[in-house]
Structure formats: C-alpha cells, structure tokens
C-alpha cells in the first residue's frame, strides 16, 4: 500500500515538473519596412490587380509549424476612414502574389471617433493590410526605344505604397504595368536589351524624371513612359541582378 502511494506521488511530481517545463517555442512578428518588402513582393493580388500596401509584417516561428495562440494585429484607422475597406492578405510563395485571407474585423471604438481593423496570425509567413486601388486608370505603358526590348521592370513607391517587380521571359518592346497612382519620388528601373544583346538600365531612377505628373491623371487615362536611348545607361555587370 505504501509502495503504491510512493509510486503515485512520484508520478504526480513528474507530471507537475513536465507541466512547468514545457519546451518553449519562440515566435517573432516583425513589421517590414518599405525598403525590406518592396523589392521582394509586388503588390499584386492573384487576379493581377495592383493593391496598395498599408502595412506588411512577417511572422517567424522557431519550434512549431503554427502557433496555438495567434499574434493579434490591430491597425488603427480614424473615423474619417483614412483607410477604407482594408483587406488582409498573405503572400503566396508559389503564386508570387498576395492572396486574400479572411477579412479583418473593423470595430468603432466607444468614442465613435476612431476605429480599428483586427486580425490574427497563426502560421509563419508574410502578411499585410492592403486597400484596393480606386483610381482604376489603365496603368503605365512603358515603351522601349526602337530595336530594344524590355527584360525586367521594377517600380516601388510610397503613399500609397505599391511595388511591381517583373521579369519577362519573352522580352517585348511595349509593356503595360498595373500601377495607377505614380509618385515623383517613386523608384523605377527598366532593364532593356538591344539587338546586339547589350543590357541597359535607366540613367535616372525617379519616376518624376520620366513622367510629368504636375497636372495629375484622370480616370481611365493611361500614362505613357516612352524611353529614349538618351535615358539609358549600359549595364556592365549583369551577374548581380
């Protein structure tokens, strides 16, 4: 009888120790800066439409595939709805596109002045709040100089934050990219190949250096960027690209 009691006691102690010393996985949510995400992730959804990034973050987990207790994410938006109809997306590594997750919940606070979007992340990956692009103009046409073809295009700009990175398997002389609202200080680079096989990039990488934005653009108006040979500079070392 005493022996039994002793065994039970030992079992109890072992259980107690096991509970109190659960191996702990670590998790970290990092809010990515614009520079960090803009050259990795184009802000395109799986329908190839441009979406405006509001905030992008990355969850890394060490020790487990997904968290039992998610990281809660709240995005404050004031009652004037500075951020309208925000959606919550996850970066799909296979598709290389943002894929819509469940819609974030929007709640107005008790003062009815401010509101916030709420969501939660369980599994590792890159996630972000995006708002749809309401401008709906027909994007930016980029036209290569005669005899040249476009190999890659990279556009990144803030306010609203959008990024577009494309590599064309079949180089072409004219492309249309679904970027609607352009910023003077936005970054653009176009890699061009001529008939001789020489590679060129833009001399100036500011969007404002190539497009006159002073009068703005109306809906359905397309923007054209016609590149001349004078805009280009030969690229010497392509192995870094």
């Amino acid at each position: 009888m005493k022996k039994r009691a002793l065994i039970m006691m030992v079992c109890f102690l072992i259980c107690k120790v096991a509970i109190s010393q659960t191996p702990q996985e670590t998790s970290d949510l990092r809010i990515l800066s614009f520079d960090e995400w803009s050259n990795k992730y184009s802000t395109l959804d799986d329908k190839n439409k441009i979406i405006n990034a509001v905030s992008i973050c990355e969850l890394t987990i060490d020790g487990k595939r997904c968290l039992d207790n998610p990281v809660e994410v709240k995005l404050n938006a004031d009652s004037k709805m500075e951020f309208k109809n925000l959606l919550w997306y996850r970066w799909d590594i296979q598709k290389k596109r943002w894929v819509k997750e469940s819609s974030p919940k929007f709640r107005i606070d008790r003062n009815k002045k401010n509101g916030a979007y709420y969501t939660a992340i369980n599994c590792p990956g890159v996630y972000g709040f995006f708002c749809p692009d309401e401008k709906l103009n027909s994007g930016l046409n980029i036209i290569a100089p005669s005899g040249c073809k476009i190999l890659t295009v990279s556009v990144a700009q803030k306010n609203p934050s959008t990024a577009y990175n494309a590599l064309y398997e079949k180089p072409t002389s004219k492309i249309n990219i679904p970027v609607s609202d352009l910023q003077f200080a936005g970054f653009i680079d176009v890699e061009i190949i001529d008939k001789a096989g020489k590679h060129y990039g833009l001399k100036k990488n500011l969007i404002g250096a190539h497009i006159d934005l002073r009068n703005g653009f109306d809906r359905c108006e397309s923007m054209n960027l016609k590149i001349s040979r004078n805009d280009l500079i030969e690229k010497q070392n392509l192995s870094n690209k």
Binding site: N159, D181, L182, Q183, F184, A185, G186, I207, G208, A209, L213, R214, N215, G216
Partner: peptide
C-alpha cells in the same frame, strides 16, 4: 522637374501644418 518630399507651414514654434502631397508630390 522637382517634387516635395515634405513641406510645412509654421506660425510660432508651436503651430505647424504639414502639407499633403498631391499629383505625385509635385
């Protein structure tokens, strides 16, 4: 050929209004 990266109007050290960029910041 230029655009604002920032602009503000001040009146006294305490009052400051930040501008909102339009037309791509031009």
């Amino acid at each position: 050929g230029t655009a604002f990266t920032s602009a503000s109007i001040q009146k006294s050290v305490y009052c400051n209004w930040e501008g909102t960029p339009v037309n791509g910041g031009t």
